[in-house]
Design a binder for these strands. Structure first.
Lengths: 143, 143
DNA sequence: ATCATAGTACTAGGTATACTATGACAATTT
DNA sequence: AAATTGTCATAGTATACCTAGTACTATGAT
């Protein structure tokens, strides 16, 4: 169950799928070379349209974290992001600024916000507790 | 020139206006009791439609940082946010998680991202001298 | 009381995004 | 060859954003 959708979250469905996959990669649940769920599989599992998953995978491909091969499937790539470090830093700085502003506005101490960020990072760094491979995947037949 | 719009920024115009005002308040350029630019003034100055400014001011009112009085104008309120601390923490945690994930993905060290956040906070607290006293707060002596 | 100024309310139209729903197609695997 | 994969195209619905304009109501100074 890699992909989870929260219909209350205002964030677009396809971006939630993107985040799901990226989290799975960050935590090691998905490793370089692994195949993602197929479009149709994922669509059924997440109860969304094929195209929505397709949109998400396309986004992931643009991010450079997966590679889709027609007829074969969609696979996690090994190499990192393609952007210049300077560009990446700019993106992070922007997010950091916004977080600082928001924290200030909500009267949350900056150090506390930093602690929360450390916690957020810690959630990602439980790399691959085990390679639990479930053979019981074939619960659906095609319609 | 309190309000600045970046037409290249994908963020909605009205939210950019909201951020502009909130930054002005955070830095002290706008103080409690101060009047905001009128709808028509701001619309001309920012070269947007009145309704867009109105939308922004409405948002700010919902946030509780300004109070609009018909016929008189829109004024900065003194009191802080209306949300429960627990709710505010949840929002910040969500943003912190996302920032952590993004930093991880872009291979930016978490400590460096934290430094950027401190920098973001510093930008808010620099350009002002005291005179601002909030009622009922305690831990507010960060230099 | 009047009048200019402030915000408010409403309708309408254009553009863009998000998502669903199909159907057809192309490349790969078996 | 057949099945499975991603890809593409089109159409339709819904929603958000922004502009434009018109009319209204409350405020405060004269």
């Amino acid at each position: 169950m890699i992909i989870t959708i929260d219909h209350n979250d205002p964030k677009p469905t396809y971006l939630q799928i993107v985040d799901s996959i990226r989290r799975a990669i960050a935590t090691g649940a998905l490793q370089p070379g692994d195949q993602l769920p197929t479009l149709r599989e994922a669509a059924v599992q997440a109860r969304v349209n094929r195209n929505t998953v397709s949109r998400a995978y396309l986004e992931l491909e643009h991010l450079g974290v997966v590679r889709a091969r027609q007829g074969a499937g969609c696979f996690v790539t090994s190499d990192g992001p393609a952007l210049e470090r300077k560009e990446r830093l700019k993106i992070i700085q922007r997010m950091a600024d916004e977080l600082a502003l928001e924290a200030h506005h909500y009267q949350i101490d900056i150090e506390q916000a930093i602690e929360m960020m450390r916690a957020g990072a810690a959630k990602l760094n439980i790399p691959r507790q085990s390679q639990t491979h479930h053979p019981a995947d074939k619960e659906e037949e095609h319609v």
